[in-house]
Amino acid sequence: MISQRTSRFLAGGILLALAATGCTTVSEAGTTQGNGAPAAGSGTALAVNEEARALLPAEIRDKGVLRIASDPTYPPFEFYDTDNKTIIGWDADMGDAIGAVLGLKVEHVPATFDTILPGLSSGKYDMGMSTFSVTDERRKVVDFVPYLQGGTGLAVAPGNPEGLTVEAATLCGKAIAAQKGTVQSLDILPVFSKECTESGKSAIDMQFFPTQNDANLALTSGRVAGVMADSVSLAYQGKLADGKFELAEGPDYEPELTGTALGKKSGLLPAVQAATVAVLESPTYGEINTKWELPASTEITPADVVLK
């Protein structure tokens, strides 16, 4: 998720339960709507940007709705509120903010992570906002509009008794989990495991789960020694889980841009780029980051929005 992108291949009470036990199920029955107003929890109203709105495809502008898919098992970016139905989080607020700038209502649609990009290509969703790392391989099938930057971290048991880090040498022979379809499962862990075997050590026991909650449950139940995912999300999830796991110390691994995914045939790219710039230039961007406890290091500038 920084401006230096890699070229590797694709790929309260209830909240505590979600992060620690993985009880969330993903179903489109949980569709929730934003009201096209300021981002939830934001004190700044976002006016419609008529120039950005004019860039919308006529079909979307006339329909008046953006259908945004997210995997609601990944706090603080997307997860269920205490009603176990309403999707909240950083991506939900950012999606509402983009919708407000474009003068559109937003429907937040729950989906499993590895089905979102295919759903964009088929036209099932208008946008995907689920903390997608911007990779060259993903860019072959969808367009991206960056909104944050960050990198990979490793969740471990409290106190990190095995001394694990996001380095291959410390993970050889260990059971390490990740969510299916993420860069951690498709790229980083396989590369690390190969480094282990090439150095004469045991391969990493890679275990991939359909949701982040499932991966976290494997850690808290002792079935795996660590979970690899976005570092900001893992730190936040550890807090929600009342310290049942924590982020291992050390720098993020290969920081890169993260952003909104769009179907290449959707025609939405210019409008979403313009709307994202408008949000980044407004106080709302900082307010959303503060609300969800994102460090300043994750913020990008308008210059990062249009990919080269």
Rank of each mutant, 00 (worst) to 15 (best):
Q237L: 02
F245N: 03
V26H: 10
L16Q: 15
S193A: 03
Y147H: 12
K63S: 13
E167Q: 14
G95S: 15
D81R: 07
A235S: 12
V224Q: 02
G36K: 14
T44C: 02
T165C: 00
P295C: 10
E162V: 06
Q212Y: 13
S7C: 08
V183M: 12
K180W: 03
G238I: 06
T152I: 11
S122Q: 06
M127N: 09
G200A: 04
E287G: 04
L66T: 06
V306M: 04
E256H: 08
L120I: 05
D242V: 15
G128K: 04
S42H: 11
A54Q: 02
D230W: 04
A97D: 05
P270G: 09
T284A: 10
P38G: 08
A20P: 08
N84H: 13
I14W: 15
P190W: 02
Q4V: 12
V106W: 05
V26T: 11
K291C: 04
Y80V: 14
V141Y: 00
C23G: 10
F245T: 01
P283R: 04
N84G: 09
A29C: 01
L307I: 04
F144N: 09
V306Q: 09
V191Q: 13
L269P: 09
L55V: 11
T44P: 05
A58F: 07
M228C: 09
T170N: 12
E78V: 14
E195F: 13
G36N: 15
M206E: 13
E78W: 08
T301E: 15
F208L: 14
A54G: 06
R61F: 01
E246W: 01
R67E: 12
T211V: 00
Q207P: 09
L307H: 02
L148C: 08
Y125G: 02
T6R: 12
T211D: 00
T73K: 05
P190H: 03
I68G: 00
L247R: 00
Q4F: 04
V101E: 01
G119V: 00
P38L: 09
D136Y: 06
D83E: 07
E162T: 10
R8S: 10
S27Y: 08
G222W: 02
